[in-house]
Nucleic acid binder design. Structure first.
Lengths: 240, 240
DNA sequence: TAACCGTGGACAACTAGACAAATCTAATTT
DNA sequence: AAATTAGATTTGTCTAGTTGTCCACGGTTA
């Protein structure tokens, strides 16, 4: 058993603090300068310890702001009936959403093909961040037909829920027609939103939700933080 | 293999939006505050990205108002027959004019020499802004002999066109005797009119239009925004 | 000697907040 | 109806604090 390096001892002390709940999930750690004074070492040594904790997925650092404690991973089921709130509630988490954009704008080629109902090239785009217990776990981007769901903008603002807002628009039920899953690397902006480091892997699901009569309702693309989410599909998963 | 800074990624995303026509020429971009929320960064970081786009001549910001998308450069031919509307129409642009001043006033020495017909030291001065697709591209200043073209004031007010108004005064044709081209820096007033930043370069053309009999008709000085205009001359350009 | 670890400092990049200046909007007054 | 006024909005500027990156230096260890 080799001697512990200086930075390793510091990392363990920080872990002790975390284990003893002196620090809660999402909270900001003392600054590197404060920690270096407290432990009587150089800032670089503290940074080495924090880097270790970051690699283990325990903390996350934001340049210019501070180092923050992360929450543990979430299991996210994918099946024929995908409902954000329901999924997380079942996992014992508190689901939250934060809207980034909610607007009618020009459609991209990809979006046009997916919803194939677009006439004048406009779509209703709803994007934002999904949280579980305050921890950002995904960036979502939903596309709707503005002619059919123009009222959706105001409804989403009120409900903050897609399922409920679609219900207000007469869609009492919808199912997942298909889901494609890919992996990407986080660009700086996505990393920032998801509170992970630039270059970390993302799980990307592209999917289409349809009404019982088969007409397309929602074309969605979601980027999950691979550190925080495990996608799972149950047996009744059916691609029709 | 450059590592992308945060503001660089944001600048690229904004460029994507512009390229995908989600933002149209002349339109106002979302406010810095909205963009900072959308990208999950500090306002200063957004400003850094916008500053980059401004330096590339893609956007233009107006304090207290917003940041606006600029139109791509316009090609403006210079030859023996220079007609504002015709030039821009040929380039596929929609030409517009806005009058700033239209009056009879004392002539400067320079104007007196150019039009050499002035007796009592008065000239008819017509100045304004030229637009292409709503984008201001030039400040023009035309000087006429008030004795010969006194009726021009009312005609221009009606026609909003120099060529047509001269026609109403009996000038069925005129040609460009000579053109001198220089470059200057925009003072704050010119910059404001042209919606560019103070200190940006201007192309300045000084020219004389003459009647077929050789008598001077119009002495003009025009300041083009160098960001928005490329002056071009075709082969038949003749300095007589 | 060579590799490694920690120290020390300088600078860049980003965050955070405050305030000023210009503009825009809407209500009020004339 | 037009002008004025007051408040809110938006960009410009400034100061300060925090993390990221780079270079150089000295001491310890293999």
């Amino acid at each position: 058993m080799g001697k512990l390096g200086l930075w390793q001892s510091i990392a363990e002390m920080l872990l002790d603090d975390i284990g003893q709940k002196k620090l809660k999930a999402g909270e900001k750690l003392p600054t590197e300068l404060m920690l270096s004074k407290r432990f009587g070492v150089n800032r670089h040594t503290v940074r080495r310890a924090l880097q270790h904790l970051a690699e283990k997925g325990i903390v996350w650092s934001k340049r210019g702001s501070g180092v923050y404690l992360k929450a543990p991973p979430t299991e996210y089921p994918i099946g024929t009936r995908v409902r954000f709130s329901q999924n997380l509630t079942l996992d014992g988490r508190l689901p939250t959403r934060k809207t980034l954009t909610l607007e009618i704008r020009a459609a991209s080629v990809e979006e046009r093909n997916a919803l194939n109902v677009v006439d004048n090239g406009k779509v209703l785009a709803y994007s934002g961040i999904s949280f579980a217990d305050g921890q950002p776990i995904a960036l979502f981007n939903s596309i709707f037909d503005p002619l059919r769901f123009g009222r959706l903008i105001e409804r989403i603002k009120v409900n903050n829920s897609v399922t409920k807002s679609l219900n207000d628009c007469g869609i009492t039920d919808y199912t997942r027609a298909w889901t494609k899953i890919t992996a990407h690397l986080a660009d700086p902006v996505k990393a920032n939103h998801l509170q992970i480091n630039d270059g970390q892997p993302l799980l990307c699901t592209t999917s289409l939700n349809i009404a019982p009569d088969g007409t397309p309702i929602e074309y969605g693309k979601t980027f999950f933080s691979a550190e925080h989410v495990v996608l799972s599909h149950s047996d009744d998963l059916s691609y029709s």
